[in-house]
Amino acid sequence: MQDFFELAVGAAASGCVYGLIGLAYLLIIRPTGIINFAVGEWAMLAAFGGYVTLTKYEWPYPVGMAVVLGLMFVVGWATERVVVRRLVEGGAPLLAPILALLGMLVVFRESISVTFPPDPHPVPDAFGIGRLELGPIGGTYQSFFTIVTALGVFIGAWLFFERTVAGKAFEAVALNRRAAALMGIDLTRVTALSFGAGAVVAGLGGLLVAPNISAHYLMGVPLAIQGFTALVIGGVGRVAGPLLGGLLLALAEQLTVRYAPVPAGYAQGVPLVLLMVFLLLRPTGLLKAKV
């Protein structure tokens, strides 16, 4: 049982990271319909930001984190401004920005690979290395920090969509772009903000997972796939979707590694199999959208 609880905390922490990446997709898909595979690279960029500010220059954690997330907002906003806006306003088919962002995925990754040597770069834990025991449940500080932070972000996102006018504007755009524009909602601003917020959320995921896996220029695509799987399992309809999907995915992965009688390498296949199964059998995800 001890073993299972240990596993559950670790799984919950990775699940929260997948959920954050999934939320980054969701923030962009809802108002624009654009699937942005570059979110994984945004997480990678933030992990390298963490390496530079926290490991190299040894800034205090909150300062480094704030600076990195601030820069991520700029990156997301700039991506929208330079690559996406022309295509959307020029009336290009939806596929055009998706493919352009796929190109940006390569641009982000290779920019980092040009700048940094190809070995893993360490990023520190938020509260140093240590264990926290709460009755039978125990885990590292970083696991608990990840869980609490991610829950905070999801509650914040839920409040934003449910309780604020700006959130309602996002929802309106998600429901019907044209009608929303006629109601006086600035589509351009909503799109730009969704990209900025998506980059911040993805960056937060990257920063939180970086102490475990180290910043590496190839870390983006696996995170992009895991985050997308979380989104598909949970469903695009609700903010809680990616969190639920991420937790289920991480639990399935950890259980496969620990208990399934297959080589450990096959654990990499778990998100892929789940992704295919859900896309083919239940493409709307587990949580139904509110009507």
Binding site: V83, V106, V107, E110
Partner: peptide, 13 residues
């Protein structure tokens, strides 16, 4: 690969 990425984005835009 960096050049490829830039080429693709430029082509689409």
């Amino acid at each position: 690969a960096l050049v490829f990425g830039v080429l693709v984005v430029a082509a689409i835009l």
